[in-house]
Write a protein that binds this DNA or RNA. Structure first.
Lengths: 214, 214
DNA sequence: ACTATGAATTCTGAATACAAAACACAGCGA
DNA sequence: TCGCTGTGTTTTGTATTCAGAATTCATAGT
């Protein structure tokens, strides 16, 4: 295997996002740069570079002289992010090759039907969901748009651990994914885009109550 | 006047973007950090922080061991960026308060009619256009979306100086703005969003030929 | 003449050092 | 008791230094 030749700041960014998924950082708390750098075993310089990147993605906030903090979560922001991703993903669907979409539709349908049950651990469910969306967007020819979606979704990661729990109506999620796949199979791209948008908005509504009032 | 208390990296970022608007940086050229830092009168640290921010916005590219370079321009990327902004701005319109939009519609119409003529210098035209779009989006309640639009538009700044010239059909631009304003005045929000989208796509098509073939 | 190799140079990536701002807290005075 | 002020500490923001990668250029070999 080729050794990792990416800049440290990127590895640090991913490590921080991965810890965020695991809920290791409480929202709203400030970051102590020296402590975190020591914990990660790197110097402050690449750490700060990673923090600046994350701030650009909205994961962190920065205040002059006061350093970085994890941006507080709020229902308002969660709604805003979901609306944005909903818009961007359906936009991406519109930028995709219809033939390719019809080609992958059966696989999308299969993945949607194989949705893990409520017993599965949260991480498995999330991975499966991400996989489905990644495959769905894999035909998008607008590369900048794909990058943008990835970046905006990073902001949603702060909400991931809040959403863990067995009450999530996975059947609804799976059914909506099936519907998107079926519409794609029938060639109704506009309808699929709308269904995808609705999937995001519905999911947001369902999860909204799990987010603490700002 | 209150003195500027923002971090250096932000001031540097804006200075670089402003120079980009003036066409002082050729696309595709790499950046010499020590030279640029000396020219700006700052050290490499905040300069690199600004460069990393700009790379996150797609203005720059970074390659391991090779530093930063201004991302090359291409018709493909220009189209991609315009498609994204078109989608985001019409999305933002949908997140706006319809009453507020109807309220500002007359001002939007006035601004559109006052569009500077072809004699005006490019900078004046651009500022006027930005002002119009800013006012249009000022009613958007999705703050994250507004930030995102600003960020994506930064990527478009690399194209600004390429688009300078007296051949630009300003009448078309002004007419399309008028149409958006009129639809807003009549309360047709969906129609206005569509017209705004078309405005971006049409503008893109018109300007596409001015961008050198990749 | 052309390619390949290797040393010298240049530049980036990362670590460290320094300066200044924010914070905490004790002492003082109204 | 409350608030202000000044000092000491902590932490960030910026500068500088160091190490290593990439590039350049000269030279040797085919």
């Amino acid at each position: 295997m080729p050794i990792d030749r990416r800049p440290l700041r990127e590895q640090i960014r991913e490590e921080l996002l991965s810890r965020l998924d695991r809920g290791e950082f409480a929202a709203g708390t400030d970051i102590n740069e020296v402590a975190l750098a020591a914990e990660l075993g790197v110097s402050r310089t690449p750490l700060r570079e990673a923090l600046i990147t994350l701030a650009g993605e909205g994961v962190l906030q920065s205040n002059q002289g006061r350093g970085f903090r994890f941006a507080p979560v709020s229902r308002k922001e969660f709604r805003e992010l979901c609306e944005i991703v909903a818009g961007l993903e359906s936009l991406a669907l519109g930028c995709s090759d219809p033939d390719y979409l019809r080609e992958i539709a059966p696989e999308l349908l299969r993945l949607a039907r194989d949705f893990p049950d409520r017993i599965a651990e949260q991480e498995v469910i999330e991975r499966h969901d991400d996989e489905w969306h990644d495959l769905l967007l894999s035909g998008c020819r607008n590369e900048r748009l794909l990058d943008l979606i990835t970046s905006v979704k990073a902001g949603l990661r702060r909400y991931a651990h809040l959403l863990a729990g067995d009450e999530t109506p996975l059947e609804r999620e799976a059914a909506e994914h099936c519907r998107v796949a079926e519409l794609l199979m029938s060639g109704d791209l506009a309808g699929a885009g709308q269904a995808l948008h609705d999937n995001w908005v519905n999911g947001m509504e369902r999860l909204m109550s799990r987010i603490p009032q700002s």
